[in-house]
Design a protein around this nucleic acid. Sequence first.
DNA 1: AACGGAGACCTTTTT
DNA 2: GGTCTCCGTT
Length: 812
Amino acid sequence: MNSDPFDFQDDAPSGGTGAASGANSGANPAGEPPWLSGLNPAQRDAVLSLLGPVLVLAGAGTGKTRVLTTRIAHLIATGHAHPGEILAVTFTNKAAREMRERVEHLLGRPAAGMALGTFHSISARWLRHYAERAGLKSNFTILDSDDQIRLLKQLIRAEDIDEKRWPARLLAGLIDRWKNRALTPQTVPQAEGMSFAEGKGLSLYRQYQERLLQINACDFGDLILHMITLMQNHRDILASIQRRARFLLVDEYQDTNVAQYLWLRLLAQRPETEPRHICCVGDDDQSIYGWRGAEVGNILRFDQDFPGAKVIRLEQNYRSTGHILGAASSLIAANASRLGKSLWTEAGAGEKIDLRGLWDANEEARTVGDLVEDRQRQGDSLSEMAILVRAGFQTREFEERMITLGIPYRVIGGPRFYERAEIRDALAYLRLLVQPDDDLAFERIINLPKRGLGTAALQMINRLARAEGTSMSRAAAQLIGSEDLRPQARRALAHFLEDFKRWREQIDQLDHPSLTELILEDSGIVEMWQKDKSPDASGRLENLRELVGAMREFDSLNGFLEHISLVMDNQEASGLEKLTIMTLHAAKGLEFDTVFLPGWEEGVFPNQRSMDEGGLSALEEERRLGYVGITRAKKRAIILFAANRQIFGQWQSSLPSRFIEDLNPQHIEEHLQQGLYGQSRSPRMVGDQSWDGGKAWGGFQGYDTEPARGPGWARAQAHGARQNVEGRGDRVRRSSRRAHGLQGVGLQAMDSRKSGHPSADQAAAPAFTIGERVFHEKFGYGEIIEISGHKLHIDFEHSGVKHVLDSFVTSS
DNA sequence: AACGGAGACCTTTTT
DNA sequence: GGTCTCCGTT
């Protein structure tokens, strides 16, 4: 991030204004500019189509970032645009940082004045400039979701709403969703405003916004929302910004939400006669943030929004081998709503996808561990391997296994550095230092470390602040001049305020890291942790030291605070090679030689809750997630699933993911564990006539061809013809038609449990009775205490009550 | 202020 | 099963 946070005024030398002139003015007369060499025709087209609206549909691994960066470099180097007229938006700060580096590398010089950042960071800069017009001061605080919740909690309490029934996080979610749709308290539809605490939703939203202005703060959504409102209501602001955004570039367009879309529309707004130089890059197949408001619709109707838009498809993949690409394509082909792309590669077929069915999650982790060690023996680096899970809880078993094996790993996406309590405490001190009206910071640290200012004192301060319509700091200052507080509390409060006064006097004397150190010492924070005997206390002190270290990279305290409220990522410096464990979401945009994809089971992936809430469109989003997962792999992908898994302390039996049947078997090599899905000698198995004892472990080979299964079946047949990848061919029908036996039973049980397709054969439930003694392969003997369909609750002699499917159990 | 018990939660997550 | 939050007790 640049030191000058708002350099977009008139510092831009004019000169790049003649966009319409000579398209090749910057080209080397001897040929073409060097940065264009090595681009394939589609990429080249995307780089050179500088004028008018352009949509680049860039499949996974097709060189999207390269196109974007080259395009920017080309704009500048050919004189089509001055850096100060370019505005490029990304979704993460990391992406922004990388993009800037690459552009400057191509140009061979800094691209000073170019606005390149996230929607939020760019908005924040503008908003600081125009703060007064939005009712804020330019040093406003950016609240994170933690602060947001605490604020909402106060409002909910003040309204006498039952916090249990109407938790603050629910309201926070509601407000976030409104903001994602660019709805202010004035524009929330009447009916929706009623949706919290018997109709108080909208009123709470309004109060929340008022309160934010009072404490001179914004939440993340406000950054964008305020800017939209400002641009809509003030022509001068809009004009000034548009001047700086003559050439717009947007990365990951499929992830934009409605508010971001409106933001872009305002920036791109031009008189009819003028072209809109907007270039959006995205991949509808990698849209995985629908659940937080992203609108795939934005990318799907780009050419309606921007008439005359040129659509360019990047389809040559440079990342993965043929089998990986083939498997991924066959999976995504099962989705109905897509713009459609056909990735291809010049790389060889490579290794097939390694598909492994295992008994339980434990074995899954062991298998991955073994395979990782195998790769290491082959000389592969750990940093080229990753385990990509659907949900956070899955990381645990892998972490445990890696610890046992002594394999260094890192988990991405755990609690982030700046979200840790001790860091947030320290930051609250700094926030209050520069912004005395920051009530949330005040409340956080007023009694930290303990200084005898408990709830009573806090309440008194709060009441006065409300009565006077002022901030808590000011109210507190007033209180120490009065007799309202007990002498002890009064002294403590006076001391607290004096500390801050003293520190503020030091702001110009000391550099900010030293000042922070001073504050941490003086306030007693350091002492507090030193006295703390809990095992993580030393780590917390370590973190505080790290915080001071991180500050040194910024030239001002304000610059640092801006950075941490927007850029909450922690870049790990450690040079040690490590295996990466992270969620599929976090993996987007990354690549690894070897990718492990565990937990491909119904319920886990696709995730049950996701489907319950979002239906078919959520299922498609899950499938895109699978597509993202597979396409992270350069050389090999291993997909795993387990028949049994403990979820929230309950054993669950599960069937392999329906996504596995979407995969074209040509690209798959199965390694199925013997005896999976209880090939036991069960006399109870419904219709078990032809079980062949293991090889064709049922679920997978069998259920694909079960017509009763519904949508999956129809899709599977339809998409064969669309194969477009190396190794194309009609989809091979699964050979086994065994639709009965264990797998049949399990299937029915699953189906009836899931939304959608009730099984036709439910009547065929085996006749277990409550109280019956049964045997389970893993849990041994037990007694049935409850039956619901095919799901049994069994009290096992050695392992307690478990929920298992009846197909895993035999009567004893 | 410090402990502990009860209850609720448990998908993904950037900014 | 694990963790977090709240609330009541000491």
